[in-house]
Design a protein around this nucleic acid. Structure first.
Length: 678
DNA sequence: CTTATTCAGGGGTAT
DNA sequence: ACCCCTGAATAAGTC
């Protein structure tokens, strides 16, 4: 228990600094610092009002300020307080955690259930090639608080003292450990109870990844904003990973052979540390994970998992077979040498003789994110053969032939198929229409059915955005800083920096409004038509908006009632807390209610089905256009979504039901299914 | 844009 | 202490 995360009393400045997962949230700069307005780009900027209602400036919706009575009660009674492995003292409603995420890749939590939102803005900048909403959450000012904070935890980096800005404003001195602790503290203790279970669960894995994402992003923001001071984390991925490891915020901490509870075949990851944290592959860099002779209680080491990431000359031609190279023989100083039958190589050899299961993670180039990689968990393989061969370098290299065990869900094979469809080396079967948007989107959206004989959805006109949207009053202070082309880190005259201490860099833009991913409308087995993507989608990434005809509440009432229009988007629907806080039902607050019908005219969003365990969520967004601005609904990925996985969001509940409206039986199949939606 | 190079880095295992 | 199929930033090579 000595690793209590900041326990001392609690000083408000620290609490204020905590950025819950909301950090993931589209990090919309708070209303008071719309850094975005600074970029007078061509495209209509997006300003986002988070569904979580405006908050008083400077006040973060976290305990002890905003915890709901229910939340508090629940956490108190369910949490075996005394011996919680990870001591997080402050209770925070889980929803803040699961709040809509945002923009960057973060995924954050998800649920839109949170109600609290503070208005935030997201601006969109055409041409910014990062689709993900960026996470610069400038909101409550990291700098303010932290700079004042006393340094408790030890920061490795030598903080060379506060860097003071020109105008004497905010020192950019951020203690990474303090920031990390603040994030941990802002998490609902109940989450840790889930995570700390000896055997992982789906929730523990997802929570872990969510926390890591928030942490990584937050540390990355700091790094970016403090570049010149060389004070940030050079490797946010490593720093965040270290913190989580140290605090025990991880899943499946015990190394094991075979499947890992809570991790599903086909799951994707974007950082090696994610693999460590969920218990899939422990080494932060090495490609072979194994149980040493001690851990395995045997004389010999046994392999548990491998990551094939292109570092050696692996052969991956056949999707079910992998020729993997042993480790070693590539010392940088000493140059190449023969590999030795030791460590991982020995473990693989032993595992082959024993016929043990070996988990395989395949690293691929992430097309959407050129500089990075995506790791695909491809399930259980067994080692069928091993030999030594001369590598190009002329030295001996061990080779292992791994064969995928049959009966497992498709994972890497799906990626291969998509690649073939892409390069036309194999045809996409079941295509009904190559582009259902008829060119209305920059990217074609195909219509496919390989399930039954339906020829397509009922007729509708494809439009990429809202029709008849009404201008709303400009979102509060449209005034942010006056930086043009983005706030510069060193500009202390920038109001964003003055207010937050951290330069927002003005990257808070969801890049384009249009589609970025290669989406397809497909026939589901039992839910009619659905939507999915050929491209992997990172948590927090903007996917699309809800296009259609804006209508008023009376019309929505009428259409949604007796007319049974199933394509109505109603921002006033309520999102039920599914898991931990069933009583916490609050309606998202947005500048003004929005009702949209996509029955006759709409875009891909009209095909997204409901799920009680959704992988997508929506956020209200205000798009600025010259002097006007109007409200839009944007969808973001809650977590990493592998290709071809159906995109779903929580439709919420209409209470009371409109005249003539009926509850619909939910077919989402989730273990958390509410049973219906309406 | 694709590939190569540089460089700081963390956990795990072995010593 | 050493090893290792990071990952980002930078540089250089391709078109």
């Amino acid at each position: 228990m000595d690793n209590h995360v900041g326990q001392d009393s609690f000083d408000k400045s620290r609490v204020l600094n905590v950025k819950p997962l909301r950090t993931l949230v589209p990090v919309f700069p708070s209303p008071s610092n719309p850094s975005s307005s600074s970029t007078p780009q061509g495209g209509a900027p997006f300003v986002c009002a988070s569904p979580a209602g405006p908050f008083p400036t400077g006040v973060a919706p976290f305990y002890p300020f905003f915890v709901s009575p229910e939340s508090q009660r629940l956490s108190e009674q369910n949490a075996p307080t005394p011996q919680r492995a990870t001591p997080i003292s402050t209770a925070v409603p889980i929803n803040s955690f699961k709040t809509p995420t945002s923009a960057t890749n973060g995924d954050v939590g998800s649920s839109r259930r949170t109600s609290r939102n503070r208005a935030a803005h997201i601006t969109e900048e055409e041409g910014y090639n990062n689709t993900e909403m960026n996470e610069l959450d400038v909101e409550d000012g990291i700098g303010n608080g932290s700079s004042k904070r006393k340094k408790r935890g030890r920061a490795k980096r030598a903080s060379a003292g506060p860097v003071t800005g020109v105008s004497g404003v905010v020192p950019v001195d951020v203690d990474l450990d303090v920031v990390a602790n603040d994030i941990l503290q802002s998490i609902n203790p109940m989450v840790f109870d889930v995570i700390n279970h000896p055997d992982g669960s789906r929730d523990s894995v997802l929570f872990t990844l969510m926390i890591y994402e928030v942490m990584r992003r937050k540390l990355g923001q700091i790094e970016e904003s403090t570049k010149e001071a060389h004070t940030g984390a050079k490797r946010p991925d490593l720093k965040a990973g270290t913190v989580m490891m140290t605090k025990g915020v991880r899943s499946n901490g015990k190394k094991r052979i075979g499947i890992v509870p809570g991790v599903e075949i086909g799951d994707i990851f974007f950082f090696r540390f994610e693999l460590c944290l969920v218990g899939l592959h422990a080494p932060s860099m090495a490609g072979i994970d194994y149980l040493g002779s001690k851990a395995s209680q045997e004389e010999e080491p046994l392999a548990v998992s491998i990551v094939s990431s292109g570092g050696y000359e692996d052969n991956t031609d056949d999707g079910d077979v992998l020729i993997y190279s042993g480790q070693g023989g590539v010392n940088r100083e000493k140059g190449a040498s023969d590999q030795k039958l030791e460590r991982g190589n020995l473990a693989l050899e032993k595992s082959m003789h024993r016929g043990n299961d070996v988990r395989v993670i395949r690293g691929l180039k992430d097309v959407m994110h050129p500089s990075g990689k995506v790791y695909v968990y491809d399930g259980i393989y067994k080692i069928q053969d091993s030999w030594v061969e001369k590598a190009k370098s002329g030295f001996n290299v061990f080779k292992y032939k791994l064969v995928r065990m049959p009966g497992q869900p498709e994972a890497y094979a799906t990626w291969k198929s998509i690649q073939q469809w892409t390069d036309k080396s194999a045809p996409r079967t079941g295509v009904i229409l190559p582009d259902l948007t008829s060119g209305a989107e920059k990217v074609p959206v195909c219509l496919v059915n390989d399930v039954d004989n339906e020829k397509g959805p009922a007729y509708f006109t494809y439009i990429p955005t809202l029709k008849n949207s009404k201008a709303i009053a400009p979102v509060e202070p449209a005034a942010g800083c006056s930086c043009v082309g983005g706030c510069q880190p060193g500009n202390y005259n920038c109001s964003c920096i003055q207010k937050n201490g951290v330069p927002p860099t003005c990257r808070n833009r969801v890049s384009q409004v249009g589609l970025k991913f290669r989406l397809e409308v497909f026939r589901t087995k039992n839910k009619g038509w659905g939507l999915r993507s050929w491209d992997a989608i990172r948590a927090g990434t903007f996917i699309c908006e809800y296009a259609g005809e804006v209508i008023d509440s009376a019309r929505a009432e009428m259409l949604g009632g007796e007319n049974e229009d199933e394509y109505i988007f109603d921002s006033t629907r309520i999102y039920q807390q599914l898991d931990v806080f069933p009583a916490d039902i609050e309606a998202p607050k947005i500048p003004s209610p929005l009702y949209v019908t996509a029955k006759n005219e709409g875009n891909v969003a009209r095909f997204m089905n409901h799920s009680c365990s959704p992988n997508v969520l929506w956020r209200p967004i205000v798009r600025e256009n010259k002097h006007e601005s109007d409200l839009h609904i944007a969808f973001f990925a809650i977590r990493h979504i592998p290709p071809m996985v159906e995109l779903t969001y929580d439709y919420g509940i209409n209470l009371p039901l409109k005249a003539g409206q009926r509850k619909k039986k939910c077919l989402c199949g989730s273990v958390k299914c509410r049973g219906y939606f309406c």
